[in-house]
Structure formats: C-alpha cells, structure tokens
C-alpha cells in the first residue's frame, strides 16, 4: 500500500516494547515507543548509550520481534526482514569474500525481474554515486574505513529499498571523512528521497542530516522529545545555524539525563 502522496516508504511504529532477560538482569530496552515517518523523511534517533536505538532499528528491519506493538511499513505489519527495509551497520558488514562490485551486486541479485545487464548497470551507477567506480574490482580489505561505509551505502541503496536504516554508520570515522560523507548522504538523499532512520550519538550530525531529531532516554527506552529541523539544505555541520540549534538540544539532553545517569 503506497503512502498518501503516492510515494512509498511510510513507516509507523505503534506501541513497540521490548524486554531482554538475561541471567543477571532484565532490561526494558524499549517501552511503548511510537513514532511515524512520512515517505522520504529523514529522521535521526539520538540518545544515550543503551536507550534501545539499535534494538528499535532491528525491530523495524524485522531482525528482532517486539514483545508488544507493531511496526508498519507502507501500512503492512513487519513480520520479518524484507529488502524494502535495508540496514547499514556501524562496522559496514561488507562481505570480504566478494569484491566491491560483488558486494553491491549481492542485494541486487536478490531483486527479481532484473536482467543481469541491468543489475550490472545499477551496481556501477551506485558505485559512481559514492565516487568509487574506480574501485569496483578492489577487495574490501584494501579500502579505508570511509570507503567501506561508502560501499555499504551503495550496497544498501542499489536494491532501491523504501526505507533505509542506518545504525551509527559514521561513528567509527574521523571528522574529515565524516564531513565528506555528510555532504554525500545529503546530496543522495535529496536526489532519491528515501525514508531514512539514522542512529547517532552526535547532535550536530543529527541536525546536519535530519528533518526531525528524535531524542530518546534510557532504561526504560522511551521517546523523550522530538525536534523539527527546518534549516535550509544542504547544511554544513560546522554552520552557525546547526551550532545554535545543537546548543538547544544539548540543554534538553542534559535535563533528561540529569536524574539518575551521570554522563
């Protein structure tokens, strides 16, 4: 079922809770979390370590089942993983036994109704998009961390998912590489308008990329506050407007984190 505007990629999280029981303790990772994203919206999840951001992404991806509540992707309840919701991981999770090209082709080969010529074309298109067309035949271990995340981005975009889930994709990179990737992600998102949910610890990263920033709090994991970001694009992480708004969010973060957690 396509979204209202005819675009696909609508996401609705309705009352999702998840509890983890281990021998030592029981953790309420998510407590009645509800959130909606319009088709083509860029949402950033921000919150302290352990507030359930990765768990929420896993549940949306269909890799983990929630205890209660449902995730709807384009109106359909999510029952398991599906290639309309692709994930980009912090450690890139590229397959070392395949070349760069082979990695981008992996997901494409699982998309039905494409000729192999068309698949090759799409793969090369996406490598060009992230500026790595010259590295199609390279091996993964020969790439830098930043290049790996670019390949992972191309791999996740190539099968044309409706929703892209990114779990701290840039947190392992140095500041300069990260800034380049902010520019790339903004450019590609503006051209392709995917619904993106990106998890980050970095307030300015969230403000540089998102339409909305969702602030979460830990134990139990809940949505604390939602900020709409109306800054003009493309944005600069080091821009004044971003810095000014980051200050406001940091204040809110401190207020929410003040009781209990001393971070």
């Amino acid at each position: 079922m396509p979204g209202l505007s005819g675009m696909t990629g609508a996401l609705a999280i309705a009352g999702v809770s998840k509890r983890f029981k281990t021998k030592a303790t029981t953790v309420q990772a998510l407590d009645n979390v509800s959130l909606a994203a319009a088709p083509g919206e860029f949402v950033c999840l921000l919150g302290p370590s352990g507030c359930g951001k990765s768990t929420l992404l896993d549940i949306i991806a269909g890799l983990t089942a929630p205890d209660t509540g449902t995730v709807f992707a384009d109106g359909e309840p999510v029952k398991g993983p599906g290639r309309h919701r692709l994930v980009m991981f912090q450690d890139s999770a590229l397959f070392p036994w395949l070349t760069v090209f082979g990695n981008v082709m992996f997901g494409l080969k699982l998309v039905p109704d494409l000729t192999s010529a068309r698949r090759t074309e799409i793969a090369m298109e996406h490598l060009r998009m992230v500026g790595l067309e010259g590295f199609a035949r390279s091996n993964i271990h020969e790439l830098s961390g930043g290049m790996r995340q670019r390949v992972a981005f191309a791999r996740a975009m190539a099968p044309d998912p409706r929703i892209l889930l990114m779990d701290e994709p840039l947190s392992a990179l140095d500041a300069l590489t990260r800034e380049q990737l902010y520019a790339d992600i903004q450019r590609i998102w503006m051209a392709r308008r995917k619904t993106i949910l990106l998890v980050t610890h970095n307030v300015r990263e969230a403000l540089c990329l998102a339409d909305r920033v969702v602030l979460m709090s830990a134990s139990p994991g809940r949505i604390q506050e939602v900020f709409a970001v109306d800054l003009p694009r493309p944005r600069d992480v080091n821009g004044l407007d971003v810095a000014e708004m980051a200050g406001r969010i940091m204040t809110a973060l401190r207020v929410h984190l003040a009781p209990g957690t001393a971070r």
Binding site: A61, G62, L63, P81, G82, R83, R85, L86, V87, F89, D91, A93, F95, F106, G107, L110, V111, P159
Partner: peptide, 14 residues
Amino acid sequence: PPSYARAARTMGSE
C-alpha cells in the same frame, strides 16, 4: 561476525 548474516537476511537472503 553476526552482522554478515544479519545484513544478508535484510537483503532477502534466507
């Protein structure tokens, strides 16, 4: 690494 299998599953590999 568990992320290999997870990435593969989201891409439709089962």
